[in-house]
C-alpha cells in the first residue's frame, strides 16, 4: 500500500517535472506559427497539430552554423575538460580531506572564496590573460582556465572525509605511497561522488555560453549554446529551431546519466526493510 502511494507520488512529480521539457520537445515538431497558437486547455496545448521535421532539417542544414560541427566541438571540450577537471580537483580534494599540512584551513578558504565572486566581475581580466597567452580562438581557452573548480573540490572533500583515517594509516604502514592510496583507496570508495562531479562538470561545459562568446570568434570553433542562441535575432527568435537544437543537445548528457546512474544504487543489498 505504502509502495503504491510512493509510486503514485513519484509519477505525479515526474509529470510536473517533465511538463516544461515535453512542451519544449513537442514544440520542436511544430511550425513557427503554431507554437503560440493554442491558448486554451486542450489536446493541442501540448501535442502539435501538424507534425513537422522542418526545424530539425533547418538546424542541420544551416550553412553558416552546422549544428553537428558544434556538437563535436563541444563534446571535445566537455570530455577533455571533465577528465582534466576530475584529476586536478580530486587530487586537491583528497589532500584537503585526508592529509595533514600547515595552512590547510586558509588554503581551503581561499579555494572556496573563489566561488563567491560573480563571474561577470572577473570576466574581463580573465579575457586579458587569455589574450596575452595568445589563446584567443583556441580550444585551450575553453578548457584550461576552467579546469580548477572549487565547487568540485568542496564536493569531493565532503565525501573523501568519510573515508576512515585508519584505512589510510594501514596502507601507509604497508608502505603504500600517497598516490597509491589515492587511486587504490580513496577513489574506489567515492565513485558516486566522483561520477556526480563528472556529470556536473560535463553539463557545465555543455552549457558554456558567455565565456565561449568572448574568447571564440571563429565560427568553426564555436560551441553548441552559441549556435542555439544564434537562432534568436534582434527582432525575432526562431523558437522551433531553438527547441529542436536544445532537444538534440540534451541527448548526449541524458545517455551518459542513464549509463552511469547504477553508481547511485546502494551498494549493500537490502533485506527486511519495506
Amino acid at each position: 500500500m505504502l509502495n503504491v502511494i510512493k509510486v503514485m507520488l513519484m509519477t505525479v512529480i515526474a509529470f510536473i517535472v517533465l511538463l516544461p521539457v515535453s512542451w519544449m520537445v513537442l514544440s520542436s515538431f511544430r511550425l513557427e506559427e503554431e507554437i503560440f497558437k493554442f491558448t486554451e486547455l486542450g489536446y493541442h496545448l501540448l501535442i502539435p497539430e501538424n507534425w513537422t521535421l522542418q526545424n530539425y532539417r533547418d538546424i542541420f542544414s544551416e550553412n553558416q552554423r552546422p549544428l553537428d560541427r558544434y556538437m563535436l566541438n563541444t563534446l571535445f571540450i566537455a570530455v577533455t575538460g571533465t577528465f582534466l577537471g576530475l584529476l586536478v580537483n580530486s587530487f586537491a580534494a583528497f589532500s584537503f580531506a585526508k592529509m595533514r599540512f600547515p595552512l590547510k584551513r586558509s588554503l581551503f578558504v581561499i579555494f572556496l572564496s573563489t566561488l563567491a565572486i560573480p563571474f561577470e566581475a572577473i570576466m574581463v581580466p580573465q579575457y586579458m590573460i587569455i589574450r596575452d597567452f595568445g589563446w584567443l580562438d583556441t580550444y585551450t581557452a575553453l578548457i584550461v582556465p576552467q579546469i580548477v573548480w572549487a565547487f568540485g573540490i568542496f564536493l569531493l572533500v565532503q565525501f573523501f572525509s568519510d573515508i576512515p583515517r585508519s584505512l589510510i594509516e594501514a596502507a601507509r604502514i604497508d608502505g603504500a605511497s600517497w598516490l597509491t592510496i589515492f587511486f587504490r583507496v580513496a577513489v574506489p570508495m567515492s565513485w558516486p561522488a566522483i561520477i556526480t562531479l563528472g556529470i556536473i562538470t560535463f553539463v557545465g561545459k555543455w552549457d558554456e555560453f558567455l565565456w565561449a562568446l568572448i574568447v571564440i570568434s571563429d565560427d568553426a570553433k564555436q560551441v553548441i549554446q552559441i549556435a542555439i542562441a544564434s537562432y534568436s535575432l534582434e527582432t525575432y527568435t526562431s523558437w522551433g529551431m531553438v527547441f529542436a537544437a536544445s532537444t538534440i543537445a540534451s541527448i548526449p548528457t541524458m545517455i551518459i546519466f542513464l549509463l552511469l546512474q547504477k553508481y547511485y544504487i546502494q551498494g549493500v543489498t537490502t533485506s527486511g526493510i519495506k
Binding site: 553558416q64 570576466m123 574581463v124 579575457y127 586579458m128 589574450r131 584567443l136 558567455l210 562568446l213 568572448i214 570568434s217 571563429d218 565560427d219 552559441i226 542562441a229 544564434s230
Partner: peptide
C-alpha cells in the same frame, strides 16, 4: 566579416582587451 552572437558583450570585451 564575423557575426557575433550577443554582439554588444562581445564587442565591448574586445574593445576593452585591445582585440
Amino acid at each position: 566579416m564575423e557575426i557575433q552572437t550577443d554582439y554588444e558583450t562581445a564587442i565591448r570585451t574586445a574593445l576593452s582587451g585591445g582585440t
